[in-house]
Design a protein around this nucleic acid. Structure first.
Lengths: 182, 182
DNA sequence: TCCTAAACGAAGTGACGACTCCGAATATAT
DNA sequence: ATATATTCGGAGTCGTCACTTCGTTTAGGA
């Protein structure tokens, strides 16, 4: 692959992440404009809009997965779990699309996104188990509902206008429900 | 207004609720087809697609408002609060659009929807206050974060595939966070 | 029953968005 | 430096969707 082609691919991905972050209904032209390339170039790298969307989605899922994996090695599993949770919600707040991405990850994505999503959930699941073993999260909470809470909190934060203080108080209520009963 | 016109208006609204419940990106033709009328009839009653969407949204918000008001008279304020919460989430599960509606209600809707949304939040706020006075909900929880949780839980339930058991366990975790600390 | 104002629907129109074509530009190997 | 294979980008094409027009139908009062 020629150097300029690789460069353009990068720039397109970055632009797409930003544009689709506002709305996935944005046009491919918008992405090309922001990336500073022609429309044809976008379609040469990503033959269809769906593939472009999926590339962005995959990128985000991979980043989340990496973050989760890093945190899995932390000394305090409880802190690691709650920090990851907060970070996902915080990023969702500033970038609308991630919530959509999280939602779509479980439904009908392509192969790459599917796998990245699965790995991310796997890594998050391990954070959860470790936090439960350390007593920071109640043992009777199972993965599906905790994951649903993660997705829901992300979406709730983006939908209602994401005031930082409100978001933190919302998370505080959520975390109180996740901690072991006395 | 002639009787057939009123009938058609009803049928269009019902069809729109169903069609847009799946996706707000659906076309106006789809609504007309399902309602069994011509496209022109839809546009005669609702001059623009946005107005049609808003009419559906208003309808839903009004129904929720009415439910909340009914429950405000219940003998057990705690039960009333949690039941309303669960009901909103359950309906959101089967009808994707209501979550979008709840989110949009706070942002940039038309006058009717704005007012219906405000009334709905007002009624929900009263349910919350009464539940707090009765000791069923912790007193330090404020409205914005509780509302954010409601929206988030709705969206989370729809996004992750709404298995009834998972949803109930998710709500159970949430409610434990909302109950007074011991 | 008959008349007419109101309502209906099928066939447009114009704009926009995803995707393609092809001549121009450019990177890199020799 | 030059050749050429690769990549670029603007100007299309095609389909879809919101919205309009207008000849036809029908409700409902006299």
């Amino acid at each position: 692959m020629r150097a300029d082609a690789r460069d353009n691919r990068e720039r397109i991905l970055t632009a797409a992440e930003q544009v689709f972050g506002r709305s996935t209904a944005a046009s491919t032209d918008d992405v090309a404009k922001l990336a500073g390339v022609g429309i044809a170039t976008v379609f040469r790298h990503f033959p269809t809009k769906v593939e472009l969307l999926e590339a962005v989605l995959t990128l985000r899922l991979q980043r989340l997965r990496d973050t989760a994996r890093e945190l899995a090695g932390a000394s305090n599993p409880g802190t690691a779990f709650y920090e990851f949770f907060s970070q996902v919600v915080a990023e969702a707040g500033s970038k609308l699309a991630i919530a959509e991405a999280l939602g779509a990850a479980g439904s009908a994505p392509g192969e790459h996104a599917r796998q990245a999503g699965a790995e991310m959930r796997q890594a998050f699941g391990e954070l959860l188990v470790k936090a439960q073993r350390s007593g920071a999260v109640r043992a009777d909470a199972q993965f599906p509902e905790v994951y649903a809470l993660l997705v829901g909190a992300s979406r709730g934060a983006t939908a209602t206008g994401l005031d930082v203080e409100v978001r933190d108080r919302m998370l505080s209520l959520l975390y109180d429900g996740l901690r072991p009963r006395r």
